[in-house]
């Protein structure tokens, strides 16, 4: 089962390396990993998608806590959470196909962010399965280039990230 973990860590040189090195050496199966700033200066926020049973995910969490710069690990898998990913897809488009592609984009609430002579670059935000679906529909037109960010997550409602995920 896929678990989504939110990891808060001090923004220090090498901290991303510490985390990714930990995943490799502990043989954890990481599906995606994104990192960026959080609401607190000096604290980075990472979203990790881990594939494994509860025991494995518990180990991931405990091992992350052993890193001195990691301050908080929260498993939001069973929480009501907003899960989002962003993708940029550059798809082959001619005058004949452009309209059809734009229609697909409308259905998915994706938008064209760049138009070239023979291409269209599309930006889409949403859950992975939604992005997967659009990609599947665009593939017959010819996808020239694509980038996906990996999942970011936030728990719905008022609970800030300081209120849950007690240390075990």
């Amino acid at each position: 089962m896929k678990h989504t973990l939110i990891v808060l860590m001090e923004d220090r040189p090498g901290v991303l390396n510490r985390v990714s090195s930990l995943f490799r050496r502990r043989n954890f199966n990481i599906e995606s990993l994104t990192v960026g700033h959080s609401e607190t200066p000096g604290i980075s926020r990472m979203t990790v998608v881990v594939d494994g049973d509860d025991t494995v995910v518990e180990q991931v969490s405990k091992q992350l806590y052993k890193l001195i710069h990691v301050t908080k690990v929260t498993d939001v898998t069973s929480e009501a959470a907003v899960l989002r990913e962003l993708a940029l897809i550059k798809v082959h488009a001619t005058a004949n196909t452009r309209g059809e592609i734009m229609q697909l984009c409308d259905i998915f609430r994706a938008k064209a962010v760049d138009v070239g002579a023979d291409s269209l670059t599309i930006e889409i935000t949403g859950q992975e399965d939604k992005i997967d679906s659009l990609i599947a529909l665009l593939r017959p037109f010819g996808i020239k280039e694509m980038v996906r960010t990996g999942r970011v997550a936030m728990v719905r409602g008022w609970s800030g990230n300081g209120s849950r995920g007690a240390r075990s």
């Binding site: 025991t55 180990q59 405990k62 052993k66």
Partner: peptide, 17 residues
Amino acid sequence: IDPAEIGKNIAVDVPIV
């Protein structure tokens, strides 16, 4: 003293960190 040692290799009935 290390929470990560508990449940790492073996399931236990009463863990005490």
